[in-house]
């Protein structure tokens, strides 16, 4: 993958410096983002240096101090935005699993899955798949950062879930690879990050939130709360999307990606809430508020994305 297109002064300055053989970091640090699009494409690219990087950027820049400084500054701003959007207090019932499932169930938002199931046309579904590809082609990777930061029980529990996400050792069953095969059969580009220049702010925010939570140890509670909310809202929507893709005659490989998530995530939601978050809270009860913050962020960012797409499609 090459560096994305800049979306403003900061991203253009930063990406140029990242590609340069003699970068002037001072100019990068002096530049402020023009707007949220500019901020988030920059942050997305800085996070990507910790995943698989860019063909046109030296791998050594992953730990370039000025880029870390910039990343910290943009992450700070984004985290503040996310916390400002969140409620001030969280449910405090002692039964965490029951409280968490109820919290997610009570959150009411627009449904992209319902639109895909009943009304979406072929072009809208392909557009949605291009948007989703930014995450699904690195599915579960942001959560993998959290593994070494956990005590014994939560670590074993998270790996039990991640092992399934990563195909139980079979590359053909790895969820990101299932999605790539589906993209290919739909005539879409299956390469990692291929559609980054096409995605709106809401997709960048969703991806950047997962990386922010995963890459900062102090936010491990938010990362796992996000994971749990993601899993709890996956099974039923995945079935509806699979039905929509079947209605439109999309290739079997893409239908299978969503069908796989119906049963897999019915397991994962129980593991994420009970054995992962539940056991972590036994050991580190101070993480409870951040778990709800992570869960809220997952649900809220998906609402924002869904509203954006449904408005664009006038649905």
């Amino acid at each position: 993958m090459l560096t994305p297109k800049g979306r403003g002064t900061l991203s253009e300055t930063a990406f140029q410096a990242m590609r340069s053989s003699s970068p002037v970091w001072r100019d990068v640090l002096r530049t402020l983002p023009d707007d949220d699009d500019d901020l988030h494409i920059t942050l997305w690219a800085l996070h990507e240096l910790h995943y698989r990087g860019f063909e046109d950027v030296d791998d050594a820049l992953e730990w370039q101090p000025e880029l870390i400084e910039l990343r910290r500054s943009l992450e700070h701003s984004f985290e503040q935005t996310l916390r400002d959007r969140a409620p001030e207090t969280w449910p405090d019932d002692p039964d965490f699993a029951e409280t968490f499932f109820t919290f997610v169930a009570d959150h009411d938002g627009p449904s992209l899955a319902g639109h895909v199931q009943r009304d979406a046309d072929h072009e809208q579904v392909l557009e949605l798949l291009r948007m989703r590809s930014i995450y699904h082609l690195k599915e579960s990777d942001p959560t993998a950062w959290v593994v070494p930061r956990l005590p014994v029980r939560a670590k074993a529990a998270l790996m039990e879930l991640q092992f399934d996400e990563y195909g139980c050792g079979d590359p053909n069953r790895l969820h990101a690879a299932l999605f790539a095969r589906g993209m290919d059969e739909c005539g879409l580009r299956p390469e990692y990050g291929a559609y980054i220049d096409d995605v709106p702010l809401e997709v960048l925010e969703e991806n950047n939130a997962m990386s922010l939570f995963g890459l900062n140890r102090r936010l491990r509670g938010a990362s796992l709360g996000h994971l749990a909310a993601f899993e709890v809202t996956s099974s039923i929507p995945s079935r509806r999307i699979a039905q929509g893709l079947t209605r439109l005659g999309l290739p079997a490989a893409m239908v299978e990606y969503y069908t796989e998530h119906v049963e897999a995530d019915a397991v994962h939601e129980q593991l994420a809430v009970r054995t992962i978050c539940g056991s972590l809270l036994d050991d580190e009860p101070q993480l409870r508020d951040d778990m709800f913050f992570g869960a809220f962020t997952c649900l809220d960012l998906e609402d924002r994305f869904a509203r954006r797409m449904l408005e664009a499609w006038a649905a």
């Binding site: 169930a105 996956s234 039923i236 119906v262 049963e263 995530d265 019915a266 397991v267 939601e269």
Partner: peptide, 10 residues
Amino acid sequence: SQPWCDGTHK
């Protein structure tokens, strides 16, 4: 998806 759970209990 019998006999497997598909989240419908919710």
